[in-house]
Nucleic acid binder design. Sequence first.
DNA 1: TTGTAAGCGTTATCAA
DNA 2: TTGATAACGCTTACAA
Lengths: 339, 339
Amino acid sequence: MGVTIKDVAKTANVAPSTVSRVIANNPRISEATKTKVREAMNKLGYHPNFSARSLANQNTQAIGVVMPSSGNKTFQNPFFPEVIRGISAKAHDHQFALYMTTGNSEQEILDGVIDMVQGRRVDGIILLYSRVNDQIMAYLQESDLPFVVIGKPYQNVEGITHVDNDNIGAAKQATEYLIQRGHRQIGFVGGDLDLVVTVDRLQGYQKAIERSGLSYNGDYVVHGEFLEEGGRQAVNQLLSISEPPTGLVVTDDLMALGILNALNEMGVDVPHDMSVVSFNNVMLAELSTPSLTSVGINIFSLGFEAVNCLIEKITDPETEPKRMMIPYEVIERNSVHSG
Amino acid sequence: MGVTIKDVAKTANVAPSTVSRVIANNPRISEATKTKVREAMNKLGYHPNFSARSLANQNTQAIGVVMPSSGNKTFQNPFFPEVIRGISAKAHDHQFALYMTTGNSEQEILDGVIDMVQGRRVDGIILLYSRVNDQIMAYLQESDLPFVVIGKPYQNVEGITHVDNDNIGAAKQATEYLIQRGHRQIGFVGGDLDLVVTVDRLQGYQKAIERSGLSYNGDYVVHGEFLEEGGRQAVNQLLSISEPPTGLVVTDDLMALGILNALNEMGVDVPHDMSVVSFNNVMLAELSTPSLTSVGINIFSLGFEAVNCLIEKITDPETEPKRMMIPYEVIERNSVHSG
DNA sequence: TTGTAAGCGTTATCAA
DNA sequence: TTGATAACGCTTACAA
């Protein structure tokens, strides 16, 4: 059906191997034959067959992208389209395509990952999240395939190449941002504690509280999901404290949105009665009412650099594991009030 | 390196072809040898090599997913993660993986598509959007690879299998929803007019206006992007009319969010001073302040059914082109006020 | 029911 | 600088 390398060889009056070399732009082929062969390729509309090529040279020019389980709420976070945008950008530069499997449970995803690894469907893998005790990360570690994690691995931090923000520092700074503006009762609303990023941000919050001479109070810390219900519960819980917080550090813009909504319903004005700082600085942070002061973590760069690291490992498997830190910065908007 | 079918054959004392038949679960193999072979596979940790398999049987078990250019704002829309969730769900059921190329321009994307089509990297393609005069759609039509469009094709509607909502009807209903609640001056804020969905929704709006005996007024119709700036401009424009609208039909939740934001800044209360109905009913619609009355279009189903149609075409290339309509419904929330 | 062997479209090794 | 030819790992007639 399709036009093959043999057809091109025939019309160009050369051997198939020559055509192959022209495709690879092998310098040991004369310019004359190169142009001759290229003309034949154009004339016949030749395109190399990927499967054949992969089979012969043991590489696929594809990167596997592992997302969290699609049953999971995490999946809905605008974080993902944006990392993927970063990933695609760099991948595209290097002529890599993206390959995704998903599943409704961690087991299904693991099966998919095993298939792509053992089936040699990809040259490397990017894990888009980091969980506590993650089976998939465990599997990847014992496989020989290059992989990179976006986020901080829970274990073996030195042994796994990863791209991350200094989330402890970022959360510390976000909290200090509120402290500097006069807040003394500061709440923390975090996402899933299974995610390393949540753990880190909580730690940064604690650090800031303690370093500022304020005393850490567990009642000020709640965890939930970013759905409407979750936001409302978190807010209810925090406002029922005898000395309720005047400022909130929320680990995710989406959660912050839910909280803004809940506060609004309860007649609590943001930022006047309650200040909010959140994380990620996704586009939504700009579109909400009021717009959100948020810690920008350069999501695009996280993806972009992850591919960079991965391609390095694919090209040279001896590359030492490394950590890459992406800078963050507080983006000031209208959800924080001094006082 | 990897363990191959031959290794399994050797340890199970059978021919490679027998192993292959066991993998395919060929009924002409005795249960005895099947178990024998399976034991060998487990013992050796065998996994079929995808490239080899694809090369031999001319199928890849992969579906190509074409997103809009990542330079495009459209890319940021939560619509995409959600369609992809639907796509993955069905694809996963049928053991298909997803394959994505992206690019910064339409040309780059086209190149990627050509590669995956001609290079036989996928068994079929799903186009996640429908534009006026789209090169990619044109290319797919002349290729012999099965493909399905999510949205209504601009041309050759009868000849291209697609999954869509009745966007004209949906917009008509959304507009009537406002009319029934007493609104007489109704504005329309639409996205990119290159997208067929925008054109359709505008048409539905016009229909509703005309059928209700109101007169259509071009001043009430504006187009923009869903960024903050876009929302503000749209609002400014609409409020400067001598008889400004009291209700707005906005073609996208994200745009509506921008508009909510702009209105809030200008001190216009939603829903009291301005009612808003938007489209898509993404999670955000629930999280905004006020929450948005939005036309739910079952994004998940759009993706899910698209894969269904695609697999049908892949399995039987003679399948007639068909259109599949996904139902919509107005989800009432707090952005509309009667009067 | 199972084995033999050719072929899928490339790349890579070895000669020429 | 180019050409034969053997892999790559699997599937599938055709034989047995």
